[in-house]
Simulated scan of single mutants.
Amino acid sequence: MKQHLKAFVIVAVLAMAGLWAYSTYFASKLNQTPSDYSTIEAMEKEGVASFAMKNLDGKEFQLLDYNGKVVILNFWASWCSPCIEEVPSLIKLVKEFKGNVQLIAISGDSSRADIDVFMKSFPEMKGENIHIVFDEDRSLMKKFQVARLPESLVLGTDHKLAKKVVGSIEWYNKDSVAYIESLLKKTQ
């Protein structure tokens, strides 16, 4: 009987030590700010610094080229179902604003061939004010700390971060249109 009692006490002590270590670990995690907080905060206060990209035709352009316009940086991939679901409404939103909204669609696909197949399904992605970028080395995804797809950054006309959208949304609705209009009015 004594051995059973010793074993029980040892198991209870180990369980309490494990519970203490587990709760201490998670309590410390709760007190930390998210790693991208400072990046998000900087983009909101200082704006997104201009950077160079190449579209699918190899033409280089910069974020700076779209000063005075609302820019949507949309991170996506052809294999991502939610990304595919939001494409039609995103295209419709960009078309609604006739050049005042620019879509920079940054693909995280593994190959250019995957993007080309996708583009056959959505030929309107080759439209005006829509710029497709193949982020082959994932450098842009890393720069903006994209955790999952789709993820979008809506930049005001001053290129300060106005909204970060994680996941798929319906882009073309009265609330989204009103929101974009409010961003455009800030420059008038």
Rank of each mutant, 00 (worst) to 15 (best):
D36V: 08
Y37F: 15
Y37V: 07
S38D: 12
S38E: 05
A42F: 07
M43P: 03
M43S: 10
K45E: 13
F51S: 04
F51Q: 07
A52V: 13
M53E: 11
K54I: 03
K54T: 10
N55G: 03
D57F: 10
D57P: 09
E60G: 08
L63N: 11
L63Q: 14
L64W: 05
D65E: 14
D65Q: 07
N67A: 15
G68H: 07
G68R: 11
G68P: 12
K69W: 01
V71E: 00
L73E: 04
L73Q: 10
N74E: 03
W76V: 04
W76K: 10
A77M: 14
A77Y: 14
S78E: 11
W79F: 09
C80L: 14
C80I: 07
S81K: 12
P82Q: 07
I84R: 11
I84Y: 01
E85F: 05
P88I: 06
S89K: 04
K92N: 03
L93N: 02
V94T: 04
V94P: 03
E96P: 01
F97K: 10
F97H: 02
K98P: 00
G99Y: 02
N100G: 02
N100S: 07
N100P: 01
L103V: 01
I104F: 01
I104A: 04
S107A: 14
D109T: 07
D109C: 13
S111Y: 08
R112K: 08
A113C: 03
A113N: 08
I115Q: 08
I115P: 02
D116H: 01
D116S: 07
D116I: 04
M119L: 15
M119F: 09
S121P: 00
F122S: 05
E124L: 08
M125P: 01
M125A: 04
K126A: 13
K126G: 14
E128P: 06
E128D: 15
N129W: 02
I130L: 05
I132L: 15
F134Y: 15
F134H: 15
D135Q: 12
E136Y: 13
E136H: 12
D137A: 15
D137F: 09
